[in-house]
């Protein structure tokens, strides 16, 4: 018991420092207390040590060894999954945390909204903000400023399909009019080159070089449109998250 007390003091004093060795020392001290007492709460503290250095994978590995289900356990798991960008797992752990608690706490709601924004479910995030606006301390007008009702993520598959239907339009849909014009122009030029080759009797050149180049640019342009719309979604998602965090501060 005394030994555990000594380790506890040592670990606590080392909790709020950042050096790797210090974190290892704290983690080791908590592991030893768990080893000697079998008390799960030491594992939770050990997980906090790894969280402080941003080692969320190791944090999750420690949390996975805890058998006693508590709100803190599930919330910490959700947080770690969020930082590892595993949003589905994050939301599952939040549901467990909410089940244990019997209701949504402010931290759970905030994390759920952030994970919904990250997974492009902006409409659901907006609804969640409106449902819990009193808890979060934001008004309906402020929610409108954070996520306007009309803001929707670009459909990446639609951008791809549009570019297949009419080269360049996928990029325009993704919000890049100029890039769409350039892409459409290049592909129109290649079609012109094909036609010119056929008219002048260069059938092999028209078929093999012209068509091959057109096909390459055609598919490449469609994939580029898809990437552009994904980048656009990421940028908008980050902006929404930043506005949300700004308001709840």
């Amino acid at each position: 018991m005394c030994l555990s007390g000594c380790f506890l003091t040592k670990a606590q004093s080392q909790d709020f420092t950042t050096g790797n060795d210090t974190v290892l020392a704290a983690a080791l001290a908590y592991e030893r207390m768990y080893f000697e007492s079998g008390n799960d709460s030491f594992l939770l503290r050990k997980a906090y040590s790894y969280k402080q250095t941003g080692n969320y994978t190791e944090e999750l590995r420690v949390l996975a060894r805890i058998n006693n289900p508590t709100f803190d356990l599930y919330y910490e798991k959700a947080l770690a999954y969020f930082f590892l960008e595993e949003y589905e797992s994050c939301q599952q752990e939040l549901l467990r945390a909410q089940y244990i608690q019997g209701e949504s706490t402010k931290n759970v709601v905030i994390l759920r909204i952030l994970s919904l924004i990250a997974t492009r479910k902006w409409g659901e995030a907006r609804q969640e903000m409106l449902t819990h606006n009193e808890m979060l301390g934001i008004s309906a007008e402020e929610v409108d400023r954070i996520v306007p009702a009309k803001v929707k993520p670009k459909n990446t598959q639609r951008a791809y399909n549009l570019s297949l239907w009419m080269p360049g339009t996928g990029q325009m849909y993704a919000g890049h009019f100029g890039k769409g014009m350039v892409s459409g122009g290049i592909q129109a030029g290649l079609v012109g080159f094909n036609l010119y080759s056929f008219v002048k009797g260069y059938y092999f050149t028209g078929t093999l070089s012209g068509v091959a180049l057109f096909y390459t640019f055609y598919l490449g342009g469609a994939r580029y449109a898809m990437n552009l719309s994904e980048m656009n979604n990421e940028k908008k998602g980050n902006q929404i998250s930043e506005r949300f965090i700004g308001y709840i501060k």
Binding site: Y202, Y203, F204
Partner: peptide, 13 residues
């Protein structure tokens, strides 16, 4: 083959 037939076409014409 693609480069070959296009070279042949260029030579012929």
């Amino acid at each position: 083959g693609i480069f070959g037939v296009q070279a042949w076409e260029g030579y012929q014409k």
